[in-house]
């Protein structure tokens, strides 16, 4: 990030809040064993559905497990799935977009038709279709969320590559004899990177939401792994007698999605002031 962009970022209070929230999440995930007041999988029938009190700050769930400890450990699952899924989407989508935009012709046409088909699945449905085929679990959920994000990245990168291909410095590099891969890696990719970073951050927000949604439906992360979406889903069965079991873990989702959204918006405004508020 240039000094100019860093200064713009530093002046944006919401962006700094986003950065603080995301840094906090990473810290909580890293230090989960130190921060969690209790064992996240320890059951206690006497404390079943305990209301929030001094012993259980956020209460206890159906099996008497401490919700706060489970929320803290759930940060690991959310960040792990989100980060790896973002990596899949950025690498796969970036590669497809670069190839399509740079090669043109039938290769471009074929890739773009494929992308169009994937984009015809409304929102969550592609991830649901993939995970229902692969089966549940952390790894498969990550793959599903990553593949779900791939077509959007590919389309965005392709558009940037097409625009950059015609710029003077790329033409100059080409005239000096730079070939395809070198041209893409040395001259085009570095200029797409800022956009990709912004996208990856905003994608993290979506990845956390989609992971939570899949786990809520019972298709994603499986018990007893503490996933926020799964915790909301378990709490749903006792919603009318113990509403805190379902609602408390949801707050963690809201806070982390908010953090990534604020950070992504802030980065976008800092890197490209023309897009401010768009």
């Amino acid at each position: 990030m240039s000094a100019d962009a860093a200064r713009r970022f530093g002046r944006n209070r919401l962006a700094l809040l986003g950065l603080a929230l995301v840094a906090g999440l990473v810290l909580v995930a890293a230090a989960a064993p130190l921060l969690a007041p209790q064992d996240p999988v320890k059951q206690s029938l006497f404390e079943k559905r305990a209301r929030p009190d001094a012993k259980h700050l956020l209460g206890a769930d159906e099996f008497g497990r401490d919700i706060l400890s489970r929320v803290i450990y759930g940060t690991r699952v959310a960040l792990l799935v989100g980060t790896l899924a973002a990596a899949i989407a950025v690498v796969a989508g970036g590669a497809l977009g670069c190839v399509a935009g740079f090669a043109g012709g039938w290769l471009d046409a074929t890739i773009m038709r494929g992308i169009e088909i994937l984009l015809a699945f409304p929102y969550l449905l592609l991830a649901i279709a993939i995970v229902s085929a692969l089966g549940p679990g952390v790894v498969n959920t990550t793959i599903a969320v990553g593949v779900w994000g791939t077509p959007t990245v590919a389309r965005m990168v392709r558009a940037s590559v097409l625009a950059l291909k015609e710029t003077e410095y790329v033409r100059a590099a080409r005239a000096l004899g730079a070939g395809g891969p070198a041209l893409v890696l040395r001259h085009i990719l570095p200029n797409v990177l800022p956009t990709l970073c912004v996208y990856a951050t905003l994608f993290m927000a979506n990845a956390v939401l989609v992971e939570a949604a899949l786990s809520f439906l019972g298709l994603g992360v499986q018990p007893p792994t503490p996933s926020w979406g799964l915790m909301v889903s378990t709490g749903r069965d006792v919603l009318l007698v113990a509403p805190h079991v379902a609602t408390m873990p949801g707050l963690a989702i809201v806070v982390s999605v908010l953090g990534f959204n604020l950070l992504g918006d802030g980065l976008r405004d800092a890197l490209d002031p023309r897009l401010r508020g768009a």
């Binding site: 927000a205 939401l209 939570a212 949604a213 809520f216 979406g229 909301v232 889903s233 709490g235 749903r236 919603l239 509403p243 379902a246 609602t247 949801g250 989702i253 809201v254 806070v255 999605v257 908010l258 959204n261």
Partner: peptide
Amino acid sequence: FGLSMPVFWTGL
């Protein structure tokens, strides 16, 4: 906040 709240949770 509207963008950050998962719909299944808001529903509950």
